[in-house]
Nucleic acid binder design. Sequence first.
DNA 1: CGAATAGTGTCTATAAGACAATATGCC
DNA 2: GGCATATTGTCTTATAGACACTATTCG
Lengths: 235, 235
Amino acid sequence: MRENLPNTTLPLSTALISVDIVALRLSNGRLQVLTTPARHPKAQHDRALPAGRIDPDKDEQLEHTACRQLKLLTLAEPSWLEQVETIGNSMRDSRGWSLTVVYFALLRNEPALDSPDAQWLDVGTCCKLQLPDLAYDHQSLLQSAIERLCNKIQYTTLPLYLLPDTFTLSDIKEVFQGTLGKAPPMRSIRNRFADETVVTDTGEKRYGSNRPATLYRLKGDNRHRLFNRLYESTQ
Amino acid sequence: MRENLPNTTLPLSTALISVDIVALRLSNGRLQVLTTPARHPKAQHDRALPAGRIDPDKDEQLEHTACRQLKLLTLAEPSWLEQVETIGNSMRDSRGWSLTVVYFALLRNEPALDSPDAQWLDVGTCCKLQLPDLAYDHQSLLQSAIERLCNKIQYTTLPLYLLPDTFTLSDIKEVFQGTLGKAPPMRSIRNRFADETVVTDTGEKRYGSNRPATLYRLKGDNRHRLFNRLYESTQ
DNA sequence: CGAATAGTGTCTATAAGACAATATGCC
DNA sequence: GGCATATTGTCTTATAGACACTATTCG
């Protein structure tokens, strides 16, 4: 509550707060998560998710905290950032109540400077998860985030946020393959994504030893078009 | 992060933490939200969402905090409880960084004892929101929760959680009408919900001055069946 | 030309929605 | 029987997916 009472009238909540980030990218068709060294000596595993605390001097919003942590590890800008869940309980930290707000970020796989601390680890596909061992409860946070991704990929334009600035329709198919472990046929990809409201034709082609592929770009502002819900025509 | 370091090595985050609940029910076809008096004298409006702080002695999990707050206002058990989002920033509370975890609860509209502080206010439908004025930033939290509800109602079994223990298919249609402001035809409701994996036929009927309607019950464990995504047959 | 991948045409499957027809209780 | 609502049958529409066919580039 935010009743603006003087500090003395209400006990402050004393939980430790952190912001954890599950940053995912697709590298050579493999889904990968960004990790950082686990700094606590007693940690069971030596890699962990990027995490940090709110810095009241730097952060105005929770999202800023997430972005700031991310920026410490990679200069790549996330193409998508979304809150996944907040975990809070008295068990996960021996000091008492601890609370973490988990964000999930998608990065386009384009060259960007990573910190030496950063390490990208494969996570397998949704069909066949092969999660790396992570310190603390980070493996389960990672799993929640991947589940969210795999759900939303099926009915949103999220696949496009894992691709570079320009991409072909086949690239989209590879996103499905790399994340879900399976992909709809090209016909379906076309029906869904080759749509003026979703992408724009750049007019350019990608050449190989075959018929050139049309390069598309994600349509500016469209955040989150949904497919396959109740029909609009419903009275 | 939860590195179990001694308190002195890392600054603790000092944000105020609260848990706010958007509890919704359907009363005579109207969607309503549970409110409590806004206790702060400077609040712009005199009703607010139920909210409270983590009590380390009573709560092991964030969800417990939410349930505990709810129980202070009504003895009805929520049929559904889900975290919506966590809002954190430095603006919403004049004392500094403040953070709130927002839950949304669905209640079956059955007789239950409410506290005298409790008041149920109409919120309109998703098509035509008529949100009550609430103190603090609670109106915007309410709006987010209703948006979540209106989305999920369209592709999950959530409508069933706003209904009493037994219900007819027409009742389900009324849930759509009361929440979305529009409803699919009975044929679609039937196709979707009259399914052995979703509900069970109680064998009983509801009688009126017309053909009696079959009474169904929500099938036990099924949490959250999804409709209308990628087809299972996808290779 | 042939290999390889891009893109199209067309049919089927699934599920939503429109609408008409039928069923069954109460009065 | 007549009213009112429940339930079913059937057709249409929207979209996913299967699959075969055509197109275009490079070597």
